[in-house]
Design a binder for these strands. Structure first.
Lengths: 173, 173
DNA sequence: TATTGTTATACTCTATAACTATA
DNA sequence: TATAGTTATAGAGTATAACAATA
């Protein structure tokens, strides 16, 4: 009874892949003998593969902080928007409120965030980073920024900017 | 006891987003008052957003065919590699064998594919499209190809090629 | 009447172990 | 001993409904 999820249609690539081809090219795959060339002409396929490649590195690098990508996003959003409410976090990160509850609770129990009464709305809570949370988020953000140059190691800074710019033009409504 | 999944860290965007910024730019978000500018400087964030934007359109366009992205990928792989085995499909699409079983069974029950004895290995099965499967896959592939120009409507053909080329350089090992 | 945070819950996707039959 | 396909099942992620407190 539920609309098909989009999220889980993106999975981590594991197998080897073959060389780049022009969009209309039809070529046989070398390593495994399986022809995947058509899929490689699709923007969605390439964007998904690239996103998962970056996220795989992200996962590994963030493991020492005990942060999943979504945790890093929540912490970063709170860091840059002190006093933000759960509802606003949900809207910004496209998380459903029931699914954020556990994450907030976990971050709270780890002593990384504090929930304070909202100044004007007694239903809501203002989210803030604790001193420990600030330190962790700062280091994690440094790691995330550093990750940029590592992931796009074959890309120049200019190419990386071009790539991100083109990507934004794809997803911007 | 399981390595953290990567797939579900990618979710469908729902809320509005703000204007593009240079990688180091720090700007306040306009619409909701929430600053998400830092996240927008990350390649992973932009790639994820773009991938999900494309997949969202993909889902809608493929709904008439009753195909999820993974179903389309499986059908397309079989179309371009008649006689491919389940194991090879798993390797090419990064699907775990137990999770492919249900998909293959479903496509078989829908009369879209046929499982024939493998010519040299009696453990394996060769996967083939039925006539109905060929028709469906052909139409679905046309839709997928058409989707390219629609999604990248603001991008020229050259920009689209550049984008896909840069993406491949990111995820290629 | 609408919204915030929350609980409960169901569905989907992803992952591991283990079995069978063949190689 | 290893591999192809399969079953069963556990875990993570994602979704909806509904509630109390407050706007």
């Amino acid at each position: 009874m539920t609309a098909p999820s989009v999220a889980n249609t993106l999975r981590r690539p594991r197998g080897p892949r073959k060389a780049a081809v022009a969009p209309e090219a039809v070529a046989a795959e070398a390593g495994t003998g399986i022809d995947t060339s058509y899929l490689e002409t699709l923007l969605g396929y390439n964007a998904r593969r690239a996103a998962l490649a970056v996220i795989t590195v992200f996962l590994r690098r963030m493991a020492p902080y005990g942060l999943r990508p979504v945790d890093f996003s929540v912490l970063t959003l709170i860091a840059h928007n002190p006093g933000i409410t759960s509802r606003q976090v949900c809207a910004a990160l496209d998380i459903l409120p029931p699914n954020l509850v556990g994450m907030i609770k976990s971050l709270d129990q780890r002593g990384l965030i504090e929930r304070r009464p909202h100044p004007t709305d007694r239903r809501a809570q203002g989210l803030h980073l604790s001193p420990a949370g600030k330190r962790l988020q700062k280091n994690a953000q440094l790691t995330a920024t550093q990750l940029e140059s590592d992931v796009g190691s074959r890309l120049s800074d200019e190419e990386l900017d071009t790539l991100k710019s083109l990507l934004r033009r794809v997803y911007r409504a």
